[in-house]
Design a protein around this nucleic acid. Sequence first.
DNA 1: GGCCAGGACACCA
DNA 2: TGGTGTCATGGC
Length: 190
Amino acid sequence: MVVGAILTQSTAWVNVARALAQLRRAGALRPAALAALPAARLARLVQPSGFFRVKAGRLRAFVRHLVRRHGGDLTRFLRRPPAALRAELLGIPGIGPETADSILLYAAGRPVFVVDAYTRRILSRHRIVGRRVDYGRLQAVFMAHLPRDPGLFNEYHALLVRVAKEYCRTRPRCTRCPLRFDLRGRRPRV
DNA sequence: GGCCAGGACACCA
DNA sequence: TGGTGTCATGGC
């Protein structure tokens, strides 16, 4: 889950799955094995997920931190109090708010709502928040109005992604699509 | 061949 | 503080 959270940065999950399959075949999904992998070899394994040199560096930064600070014990690391774990994750190069929260929710099972480009896009298009709302404020909208249930946050986020993807998939040539604008926050094309 | 995709970060004004 | 470029592959 941690590796997937890093590899999925600005990348469709189907390509992340390819990289994960290669890592699994190489026996490189355990912290010790990942830490022992030469940078060039790791980069080749994660190549299908794009930005492979950057992501290989980020994976290495994470496992280096895990080994140095927690003896490579991922379970112990993930059992840290959520606020402390989040702060620690944000201190690792290449892990920002969304990646940290993905690890908290999906790997550590903590009730943290993950805000991604789809979440921002849907809420801003419904005028629930402004286009330039910062990550923390958008996250607070969900955290303040939903029960703090990891399973609920997990499914809620998954449904937002599904709705957005399905809407666009069924209307590939719809230039007036209300959801279709640049995920990086630039102006809509419509 | 162009466009775009479930971020993070450095750099600049 | 906000805007922009960079990282890079793969599907359409």
